[in-house]
Design a protein around this nucleic acid. Structure first.
Lengths: 335, 335
DNA sequence: CTGAAAGCGCTTACAG
DNA sequence: CTGAAAGCGCTTACAG
């Protein structure tokens, strides 16, 4: 089967006996075109198997319907859920995602950003990799492409942003454990690192201080944010002389790994030791035991981010919006 | 800050004192251009902050560097890992993914395919949604866009395909349990459904037959492929009069949910009852207990799929390749 | 080795 | 309400 040239608006024009302009307008369902004419054009288009050529349209219009979606870690269900949210509203609004995964690598991220730009993306949704320098983000602004940052803020740049309040979330998580009677509460996460890490830890310390409990440095266990980190964290804590009775984890992935590590050692979270997570990813409800955690609705964050971007596309000048979700405590059985 | 027009090859030409043609050729590092001239052009491009306009190039060349990547279920880490594999090789080969998630919805899938086509994608990598009708796939062929199918085959269409051998995999999984001394082995998965489901179940029954064990209909538990399914499956099995001592699960997600459900009931997989999964997703090594499973390397499948597609782009006429990975048994502690 | 010219498929003022 | 014309930024024969 020979592949023949796709029909163009010129072909439709000829077929329907009108001009190219009329076809173009009709295709955009402009109300400049008389209904009968429009119908004739649309019929012709269908008849010929017309396929709209977006590259050509974008070239002419400058604005495309491509949105660059750049995500740092698909290995964490949190980001996958966020991505699903982003995609949902993009799709229903007639946009499509130019997607790339950086695996927390700033070099990859730069390459990907450049590529997204070359493709004339109308906007960018970016979950920046750890260690994204401030100027990498300033650059996007210089390009004149509207962007919304998600989850991690870079510097004090006045961007549209969607994220959750790590300080408040961790404060609540810790306060919940205190309210449940715990006095010896450990933290598994990163001591330094990005703003997100810092804020979450701050929430923990704030709650500890407020309850006038001692802040024990050795109860703050600095590990990588990963299942391995959760495992290591638990090992460390269980070896402590003066053993904590509860653990606050940086996120659900760490927490679920902690749960498993406890099981492996014959301990049950929620009974022998309390564990609370952060994010409320899908798996949290299905872990053993089901995880008590701070819900920040990643999917909704994704949807919000898309909506923010779409709105920005129409009001370039508007002041930036920050959407900071307040985490909600979801008590299940681990703590 | 006013946004100014991006410079074009015309601007570069003027700046460097050559013609547009020369600039275009130099930018493609054609060896038609004298090195010194090329250098001058490249300097000018950098100086002016030139951004290659791919929409324009695609319009002219017909062929773009966009690859449609359509994935059915990002909720399952298997597909996420596959996606990461796809992306890795796409990126390093200078392509970028036009990505969409169908959530197993054929209507969404059709919409997305149409969109990918309008964008002039050079090729398509498709994990088809359940219930994808054969003609949806034939259509892609009619469009003349090279495609490779992943994981699920649709009909007997002669496509490039990457997947794993479900029958052999499940046969091995079951045989492993038999070799370990089990005689009463249940199966949690779908009884009918796609080809993949059918083949996996066939592998199970083949092993049962070969060992001359009775094939008990009530030990084949028909549940949805999801964590909930795994949970339900275990509940059903534990209520059985004549209780199986081992369970083969459709995939790791089901298996891990099964593990958790067992724990919840005070049972430990690998001790009280054996459980084996299928896929070897990242979580399998971190579950409690670590999951014995059939490894099919999703990431590698993704890389393979991209490579196949990239190769196909250069040899349109070549006969289709099927890459069927043979699952490898990974014995951990659950069975 | 380099330049002038045509054209990819569309949209958008501008006339009428 | 519809058409003729210009032009978006590039690539690719074709001359020279």
């Amino acid at each position: 089967m020979k592949k023949m040239r796709n029909p163009t608006i010129t072909d439709i024009a000829e077929f329907a006996g009108v001009s190219k302009s009329t076809v173009s307008l009709a295709l955009q369902s402009s109300d400049l075109i008389r209904p009968e004419t429009a119908e004739r054009v649309l019929d012709a288009a269908k008849e010929l198997g017309y396929v709209y050529n977006r590259a050509a349209a974008a070239l002419r219009k400058v604005r495309s319907n491509l949105i660059g979606v750049i995500v740092n870690d698909l290995t964490n269900p949190f980001f996958v859920e966020l991505l699903i949210g982003v995609e949902n509203v993009l799709l229903e609004s007639g946009y499509i995602a130019l997607m790339a995964h950086t695996a927390e690598d700033v070099t990859v991220q730069n390459r990907v950003l450049a590529s997204v730009r070359e493709h004339g993306a109308a906007g960018i949704i970016l979950c920046p990799a750890f260690d994204t320098p401030r100027d990498a983000v300033e650059q996007i602004r210089a390009w004149g492409i509207p962007a919304v940052l998600v989850v991690r803020q870079i510097g004090e740049l006045d961007y549209d942003f969607v994220g959750s309040d790590g300080a408040v979330g961790m404060y609540k998580a810790t306060a919940h454990l205190i309210a449940t009677g715990h006095r010896k509460i450990a933290y598994i996460g990163r001591k330094a690192g990005g703003l997100v890490s810092v804020q979450r830890l701050e929430g923990y310390t704030a709650a500890i201080h407020e309850a006038a409990l001692p802040l024990r440095e050795d109860w703050i266990v600095d590990v990588p944010i990963s299942p391995e980190g959760g495992q290591m964290g638990v090992s460390t804590i269980l070896q402590l002389e003066d053993r904590p009775t509860a653990i606050v984890c940086y996120n659900d992935r760490v927490a679920i790994a902690a749960l498993n590590e406890l099981s492996r050692r014959g301990l049950l979270a929620g009974k022998d030791i309390a564990v609370v997570g952060f994010d409320d990813i899908g798996d949290a409800a299905h872990s053993h035991p089901p995880l008590t955690t701070m819900a920040v609705d990643p999917r909704q964050q994704g949807e919000l981010a898309s909506r923010l971007l779409l709105r920005r596309l129409n009001r370039r000048g508007a002041p930036p919006t920050k959407h900071v979700i307040e985490p909600k405590l979801v008590v299940r059985q681990s703590g």
